[in-house]
Design a protein around this nucleic acid. Sequence first.
DNA 1: ATCGATCATGCACCTATTGTGCACGGTTAT
DNA 2: ATAACCGTGCACAATAGGTGCATGATCGAT
Lengths: 315, 315
Amino acid sequence: MHNRCMIDPRLITLRVFARCGTVGATAELTGYSPSAVSAQLRELQRVLGMQLLTKDGRGVRLTATGRFLVAGSDTLIAEWESLRSAAMAAGDQVQSRFGLGGFSTAAAQLLAPLAATLRSTRPLLEVQVLEANPARCFDLLVAERIDLAVIVAMQSDTYVEDDPRFEQTVLLDDPLDVIIPSNHPLASRETVTLEELASEPWITEAAGSTYHSLFTAAFTAVGVTPRIAHEAVEWETQIAFVGAGLGVGLLPRLAPLHSAENVVRLRITGKGKPARRIVAAVRRGSLASPLVQESLGILQVRAKRILAARPEDDL
Amino acid sequence: MHNRCMIDPRLITLRVFARCGTVGATAELTGYSPSAVSAQLRELQRVLGMQLLTKDGRGVRLTATGRFLVAGSDTLIAEWESLRSAAMAAGDQVQSRFGLGGFSTAAAQLLAPLAATLRSTRPLLEVQVLEANPARCFDLLVAERIDLAVIVAMQSDTYVEDDPRFEQTVLLDDPLDVIIPSNHPLASRETVTLEELASEPWITEAAGSTYHSLFTAAFTAVGVTPRIAHEAVEWETQIAFVGAGLGVGLLPRLAPLHSAENVVRLRITGKGKPARRIVAAVRRGSLASPLVQESLGILQVRAKRILAARPEDDL
DNA sequence: ATCGATCATGCACCTATTGTGCACGGTTAT
DNA sequence: ATAACCGTGCACAATAGGTGCATGATCGAT
């Protein structure tokens, strides 16, 4: 289970620490115990002869040298990933472990089939799927726990498109639909605009969550300020709220609506066509790896099939 | 004493193996036992999931994948050295170990003072000097046993100026003199040309040795084919041979002639002014390291002082 | 062909690196 | 003041990783 990476695991630990800021969180993310993380970082400083950490309140903080090292290590990691991938591709070799990460519907609709396919085409490959939210997926990528993540990219999210640590591939744009109670005046319509629903009570996720920013982005695009009446965490909960007549909500096309008979799904028309973008992310440099290539191919096919299954859709 | 490097030591071992071709030689060079090297390479293949070695007769040989990996790892190592050096420089940090390598007179005249200076300016730095011939110095650099080498560069040698693994700095050009018996007809002269000594019996090192190629290069430059009468390994032996009237020889200016009273040293004039070029070599990327910078500075000063001590010389 | 030399590797054994679990001291929030 | 949190040191345990020797395989020389 240990280092499949050529870079000293302690440096990886330092990188994870740089992301989450505390020894405890680093331990949780890497799978080590807090004392192990502490010892690793101490050893790293001793071996390199650098002071990387300083006491800061009840925690520790990276020194300037530490930040410098972490920042510079990005290209180092990418270089290694690139080399490893190229060597795997050049030698027609097989790797033994492959970690996947993803979030909710993405995981269900894309990762599960991918894992199943890989399991059949490469019987002796050990595939592991971890469900985690996008932010954690990136952490897991950094921590080398997973090799590929399928995540939802926000337009206005903290993650930047050109992070030197990752490479991303767009899989598909999943449009957001509106779900309203079946006894709603607009329930017989095929399509609506967000403006028409401006005065409705909305149901969304808690502020700060992954989908809340998607929600607000959709409305700011059309210049409407929605009234948020309720908050739900799971899609199922939100659907139940809508079914109970508490309000209306946004639901990605990929999220199934099977169990709710008193809720209808309407497509959104107008200038603001909100969508969530589903992308695959890998560590920078690993794109050339045969397994990553194959996986991306499978995901692309799956995405195309999903798009094709839609009746007559906007591109 | 172990990994001061962030790159997996097993990859370093693989790189050393790529240079010397046998497990035994790799073990000797890295300081491990043969079984350890064997186990390391086996582990490396298991972890990476690549077949890097193949049986070849009674030995093993790199596969195409293995060669690819080794070739690509050059930039990876350089990248790390560069990062480490930059971090050291940025953070005003000190490293604890510093390995020097060099050859014969170079070691004596340049490395010894350097080591002494470093020992005084950085008391808690552990300086280690290894005497080794140029080829082995490069091996030791690859094996991370030393960090800086002072070696003699041949014009027509196997090492290439732009090896992606090393960076080299010219320290000084050390001209070759002629040594002849003091009862020789030309002994009263100040200078001679190689043409004048074309028919003399020459004393040099065995073919294939470091200085033999320097020797032949000097003569091919003036279009003369010398008659090699005797072979000697040490300068002292050669000088003794000349003193005994067995022939004449070439001697670098830096090699001292103190103990021989019946031998005279003559400068060479004419179009072919043979010289050996003394250069400092480090792993590519480590030039930015404060210690390397300081060391190179000290060496340059020392080289300049040596040049200045010469009466009136060719540039 | 035979013998010896050379080379890689497996095995038994040992060392020491490295991880865990728990307790402790310092720091912040209530 | 008390409680919660964070990082670290320590005893102990696991295991990765080392050595030394014996073994098998191959090549060169007599």
